[in-house]
C-alpha cells in the first residue's frame, strides 16, 4: 500500500433516527483508507450500515461524528468527484438513455458537440447501441443498470461509489455485468467503493474486501483479494475458492449474530 490514501475515514459513527421508534447506532467508529485506483468492496449482512457508509462518503448524509476526507478535503456535500450508482438504477424516468447520460455532462458545462460525442462513446462502451432513444421504462433491468453505469462513468468522476449495483438483477445478467465492469475498469481505471452482500462478487471484483459486522456496523476484518483473476475458469481456481470460503465464514458469523439479535 505505497500509494497515499485518497479516501480517508476516521472514527466515523452514524446514528439512524427513524420518524417513530428508537434511535439505532448504524455505524460505530469506522476507519478505512482507500488508495488511488484501488477497488474496495464493503461486504456484510443486510442492516450492517454499508450503504449508509457509502452515502456518507457521497456526501448525501451529514457526517456527524468522525471525519471523511477525499483528496485531503473534508466531505461536506455531494460533488461530481464522486459518482454513484444505485441498486435501483435511479435513472430519470422522463429522460431517454441518451438524455440520462447527457445530464451529468451538461451540469459539468461541457460544450454541446463534445458531450454528444462523449455520450455516444459511453453508449457504445456499455453496449446500448440502438437504444439511445428508449425511456428507462422500456429497458430490461440489465440495460437500465448499464445506462446508470454509463451515466456515472461519462462525467468521469475520480471515485466511483456503487451501492449493490447488481443486487436487483437476475443471476445470469449479474454474471455478465460483473465481467463487463471488469473490462470497463481495465480501460478507465478508477477508485471504487463497492457495496455488496455477494461474497463471490466481492472477491472477483475487489482488491480488498472489508467485512462488516451488523448493529452497530463496524469493520471487522479487511481481507486482501488482489491476485490474478484473468484465468478462464477463475471461479473454480483454488486460490479463488479458498478466498471465498474464508470470507464466507466471516460473513456467516455476523449474519448469525445479527439474526439472533433481531429475534429477541
Amino acid at each position: 500500500m505505497a500509494a497515499p490514501a485518497q479516501i480517508l475515514l476516521e472514527n466515523v459513527s452514524h446514528v439512524y433516527r427513524p420518524v417513530r421508534g428508537r434511535e439505532v447506532l448504524a455505524l460505530d467508529q469506522v476507519s478505512l483508507q482507500v488508495a488511488n485506483r484501488e477497488f474496495v468492496a464493503l461486504l456484510g449482512p443486510s442492516g450492517c450500515g454499508k450503504s449508509t457508509l457509502l452515502y456518507l462518503i457521497g456526501g448525501f448524509l451529514p457526517v456527524e461524528a468522525g471525519s471523511i476526507t477525499v483528496d485531503g478535503k473534508k466531505v461536506t456535500g455531494p460533488g461530481p468527484d464522486r459518482g454513484i450508482v444505485f441498486q435501483h438504477f435511479a435513472l430519470f424516468p422522463w429522460k431517454t438513455v441518451r438524455g440520462n447520460i447527457l445530464y451529468g455532462l451538461e451540469r459539468q458545462g461541457m460544450p454541446k458537440a463534445e458531450r454528444e460525442k462523449r455520450a455516444q462513446d459511453f453508449i457504445e462502451l456499455v453496449g446500448l447501441h440502438g437504444f439511445e432513444d428508449s425511456y428507462p421504462s422500456q429497458l430490461s433491468g440489465g440495460m437500465k443498470q448499464r445506462t446508470a453505469i454509463a451515466r456515472t462513468l461519462a462525467f468521469d468522476p475520480a471515485i466511483l461509489l456503487m451501492d449493490e449495483p447488481f443486487g436487483a438483477l437476475d443471476a445470469q445478467t449479474r454474471g455478465l455485468m460483473q465481467a463487463e465492469l471488469m473490462r470497463i475498469f481495465q480501460r478507465t481505471p478508477k477508485t471504487v467503493i463497492f457495496v455488496t452482500h455477494d461474497v463471490q462478487e466481492a472477491v472477483y471484483l475487489a482488491d480488498r474486501v472489508a467485512v462488516m459486522s451488523a448493529r452497530p456496523g463496524r469493520i471487522k476484518t479487511i481481507v486482501d483479494t488482489k491476485f490474478d483473476k484473468k484465468a478462464e475458469n477463475i471461479f473454480k481456481e483454488r486460490v479463488f475458492v479458498e478466498k471465498v470460503d474464508e470470507i464466507w465464514h466471516l460473513v456467516r458469523e455476523e449474519a448469525i449474530k445479527a439474526q439472533g439479535r433481531r429475534s429477541t
Binding site: 452515502y55 445530464y103 451529468g104
Partner: peptide
C-alpha cells in the same frame, strides 16, 4: 435517489428542483 443522483452530477439545489 434521483435527487442524490442529480446532486452528485453537479446540479445545484435550485437546478435540482427544476430538473
Amino acid at each position: 435517489v434521483l435527487v442524490w443522483s442529480a446532486r452528485s452530477m453537479g446540479a445545484s439545489r435550485l437546478r435540482m428542483l427544476w430538473d
